[in-house]
Amino acid sequence: MGIILMLIVGGILGWLASIVMRTDAQQGIFLNVVVGVVGALLAGFILTPILGGAPITSGAFDIRSLLVSFLGAVVLLAIVNLVRRGAVR
Results as ranks from 00 to 15, higher is better:
G2V: 05
I3F: 13
I4S: 15
L5T: 12
M6F: 02
L7K: 02
I8F: 09
V9R: 00
V9L: 12
I12M: 02
L13S: 02
L13Q: 00
L13Y: 01
L13A: 02
L13I: 01
G14R: 02
W15I: 07
L16T: 04
L16D: 01
S18I: 05
S18R: 10
I19G: 14
I19Y: 13
V20L: 15
V20Q: 07
V20F: 15
V20A: 15
M21F: 03
T23S: 12
D24C: 06
A25K: 11
A25V: 07
Q26Y: 03
Q26K: 03
G28A: 12
I29Q: 00
I29N: 01
L31A: 11
N32E: 08
V34Q: 03
V35Y: 00
G36P: 12
L41R: 05
A43S: 13
A43H: 04
A43N: 05
G44E: 04
G44I: 02
P49T: 15
I50L: 15
I50G: 12
I50F: 13
L51P: 03
L51Y: 10
G52D: 06
A54E: 14
P55Y: 05
I56T: 00
I56L: 12
T57E: 15
T57Q: 15
T57A: 15
S58T: 14
A60I: 09
F61D: 10
F61Q: 09
I63D: 07
I63W: 09
I63M: 11
S65I: 00
V68D: 01
S69T: 05
F70D: 05
F70T: 06
F70V: 07
L71T: 15
L71K: 08
G72C: 09
A73W: 00
A73G: 03
V74F: 05
V75D: 13
V75I: 15
V75G: 14
A78H: 01
A78M: 10
N81I: 01
L82F: 09
L82C: 07
L82H: 05
R84T: 11
R84D: 14
R84E: 14
R84F: 11
R84Y: 10
R85S: 09
V88K: 06
V88M: 13
